[in-house]
Design a binder for these strands. Structure first.
Lengths: 346, 346
DNA sequence: GCACATTATGCACACGTGTGCATATAGGGG
DNA sequence: CCCCTATATGCACACGTGTGCATAATGTGC
C-alpha cells in the first residue's frame, strides 16, 4: 500500500529508473527533473523500502547483536556504545539474548542468517565454535567482545582483566591488607580466571602467600551469587580483611551478607567490585571498583565491524584490541582493622 | 553467494516453484519429491532468505522497539519480557533509544518505516503525537508501554501508578509516620504525577495534611537525581521521617546522601523505592519498594502486538491493559524515631 | 476408448529497487 | 547540413521468494 517509486514515476511522467536515480543522487539526471521528482516524493510521503533495496544490493544494513543476558548493567552500557555508533552509520540491529541456552543460541544464529544480517557482534556470550563457523560460512563478519577464547578469533575486543584484577588487589595491599580473598564467578569463564590471575600476581609481587582457602566462587555473577560467595567466606575460621569480587553486582551481594552478619565495610572488611556500574558510586558504602571502558568497548566493537563491512579492514587479518580500565577508589576499602581481624561465628 | 531455491531446483531437476512449495509444506507436492528436495536443501546448507520472502509477502517479521534509555534496570527487564515473547513467535526486533533527543526520535521513526517493521512497541518514551501519526499512516500497529498519554492511544499497557504511590505511602503511614516527603522525577511526566496522586490520596485518607514543602523533585530519574532531591529535603527546617521516591535508583541516591549527612535509614528516616529492580533487595539497607510486573509488562505488550499482527485483535478497537504491582516491604522502612525527628543542619 | 476428476508440476508475473546498456535529444564544430 | 560528443532518460533484467493459473501426467468411471 505504501508509495513506491513507480507511483512517483507515473505522476512525474518518467520511468521508475529515473526516479530511483534522482532520489539516490545518481549523476546524469537533469537538476530540474531531480527537483521535480523530489518534490513529488515529498508530497506523497514516499519512504524508500530498505528491504527491497537490500535484496538487490545484497546488503541489509542490519547487524545482529548477541548477548548472554539483557538484564545486565555492564552489558547495557556496552550496548549503548554499540547502538550510538551503529545508528550514526545508518545501521540498525537485532538484539538477541542466548540466556546460556544452547537451543536458543542455535535458533539465534539461524534467524540471523535467515535475515541476512551484514555482520554480528557477540558480547560476553560463548557462542560455540560450531555456530561461529556457520556464520563464517555465510561470510558474515563477526566481532567478539570479551569472549571466552579471544585468541582464536580474528576480530575481537576485550579488556585487560589481568591488569584489572591486579589493580584492585594491589590497591588493597597498599592499604595494608595481608589476607585478601578472591570471589570469582563460577560461570564467568575466562574473564573470571584472568581476574584471578591478576589477583595472584599482585599477591606474589608483594611477597604475600596465596591461600587457596581464600579463593572461592559464587555460582553466578548476580547479587545472589555474591551473597552465596560471602557465606562461604564467612564459613572460614577467620574472615579475610579484604574481598576482591568478580563484579560490582556480586560485591553488592557480598556487602549485604556481611552487613547481615554484623561485619562493617570497610572498617572490618574491605570489598572491591569490578566494572563500575552506574549504581556503584551510590551504594552504601560507595564501592571501590575497577572502571571498565564499557561504552568504549561497545563503540570500538561497532567501529571494528563497520570497517569490516565497508571493506576498510581485511576480514582475514587478525585484529585484537585490548582496552584497559582504571582503578576507581571509593569508600568500601580502607586499611585493615588494627587489632586483629574480625572473628567469624563459625 | 548463498544457496537459493533456484540452485536446489537445478540439482533436483524441478522448477524453483516446486522447491518453494516443498520447503514451505505447500499441499500438492508428491511426498517423495518433498523428501528429495529437503535432502538436497540440507546438503547444500540452504538457509531461506527472509528478506526476499518479506518483500513478496509484505511482512518483515520484524518489530521495532523504541525506548528512552537503554541503560535502565527497569526497562531491561521489560525488554526481557518483550524479547522472550517475540522470539517464541518467530519475530525479531530492532532496538533503538531516543535519549530524549527529538532529532534522534525522528530518525528512529523514519528508519523503522524504511525497514518496514510490522509493528512497534514504544516503551516509556514520549514519542510525540506527530511521529505516532506517521506510524499510523503506514498502518504500523503500535503498542505503548507506560507512555505519557495512555488514554489517547488505542493500544497501550501500563501499570497502576496511583495505586503504587498509594501503597508505599500507606505502608509508611501504617508504620506510624506522619510527615512523609514525596520525591518525584521532574522528567517522569505522567508516571511521576500519578505516583504523587497516590501519595496524596493515602495522606488524605489517613487525615494527614499535605505539606507542599515536602513534595520535591529530582532533575532526573537517576541516582544522581535522587541525590539532588535528598539535598533539597535536607534543606528543609526539619527532615521528614519518611521519603517516597519515584523509583529505586533515585531511592539509592537518596540513601547515599542521607548516609553522608549522618542520617540513618531507617532509624532516622524511612525510604521507599519503586520498581523493585534486581539490586533493590541487596543494597544497604534492603529497599522497601513497590514491585512492578516488569517482565509481565513486556510480555503482555508483545502479546498485544502479536494479536494485532495476526489479525486476532482489531486495530481500531481500543485495548488498554493496566497491571498492578504489589508492595514489597524490606528494611529501609521502620516506625519513625520515637523522640522527635532528625534535626537538619540547615 | 473417451470424458472427466485428481494430482503434480511449471510458467509467468509480482514484490520494490538498482544497474548495464541502448537510445533519444540537444549542442557544437567543421 | 552532417558527424560527433555529451547529456538525459528508458528498457530490460536482476535480487530471492511466493502464487494464480495453466498444463501435463495419472487415475477413474462408464
Amino acid at each position: 500500500m505504501p508509495v513506491t517509486i513507480k507511483d512517483i514515476a507515473k505522476i512525474a511522467g518518467v520511468s521508475h529508473t529515473t526516479v530511483s536515480r534522482a532520489l539516490r543522487g545518481h549523476p546524469g539526471i537533469a537538476p530540474e527533473t531531480v527537483a521535480r521528482i523530489k518534490k513529488i516524493a515529498a508530497e506523497l510521503g514516499y519512504i524508500p523500502n530498505t528491504v527491497a533495496r537490500g535484496l538487490k544490493t545484497q546488503r541489509s544494513g542490519v547487524v545482529g547483536v548477541i548477548v548472554r543476558r539483557i538484564v545486565d548493567p555492564f552489558f547495557s552500557e556496552v550496548l549503548n556504545g554499540i547502538e550510538d555508533t551503529l545508528q550514526a552509520a545508518g545501521y540498525s540491529f537485532f538484539l538477541s539474548s542466548s540466556n546460556r541456552d544452547p537451543e536458543r543460541e542455535k535458533t539465534i544464529v539461524r534467524v540471523m542468517s535467515e535475515r541476512r544480517v551484514d555482520g554480528v557482534i557477540v558480547c560476553s556470550s560463548q557462542v560455540s565454535e560450531h555456530h561461529r563457523r556457520q556464520l563464517e560460512r555465510f561470510r558474515v563478519p563477526t566481532v567478539l567482545i570479551n569472549n571466552q577464547a579471544a585468541e582464536e578469533s580474528a576480530h575481537s575486543i576485550y579488556h585487560d582483566d589481568v591488569y584489572g584484577g591486579w589493580a584492585v588487589t594491589h590497591h588493597l595491599i597498599e592499604l595494608g591488607h595481608k589476607r585478601i580473598a578472591f570471589l570469582g564467578n563460577a560461570r564467568g569463564g575466562r574473564t573470571s580466571e584472568e581476574r584471578l590471575r591478576g589477583y595472584k600476581q599482585a599477591l606474589s609481587e608483594a611477597g604475600l602467600p596465596i591461600d587457596e582457602a581464600c579463593i572461592v566462587s559464587g555460582p553466578n555473577g548476580l547479587a545472589e551469587g555474591g551473597a552465596e560467595g560471602a557465606r562461604r567466606l564467612l564459613a572460614l575460621p577467620e574472615l579475610p580483611t579484604g574481598v576482591v569480587c568478580y563484579n560490582d553486582v556480586m560485591a553488592i551481594g557480598v556487602m549485604r551478607v556481611l552487613a547481615e552478619h554484623g561485619v562493617h565495610v570497610p572498617a572490618d572488611c574491605s570489598v572491591t567490585g569490578f566494572d563500575n556500574i552506574e549504581l556503584a558510586a551510590y551504594v552504601n558504602p560507595p564501592l571501590t571498583t575497577f572502571d571498565q571502558p564499557k561504552y568504549e568497548l561497545g563503540h570500538q566493537a561497532a567501529v571494528m565491524l563497520l570497517r569490516l563491512l565497508d571493506g576498510t579492514a581485511d576480514s582475514d587479518k587478525r585484529d585484537i584490541v585490548v582496552l584497559r580500565g582504571e582503578l576507581c577508589p571509593r569508600e568500601s576499602t580502607a586499611p585493615p582493622p588494627e587489632n586483629g581481624r574480625f572473628v567469624t561465628e563459625g
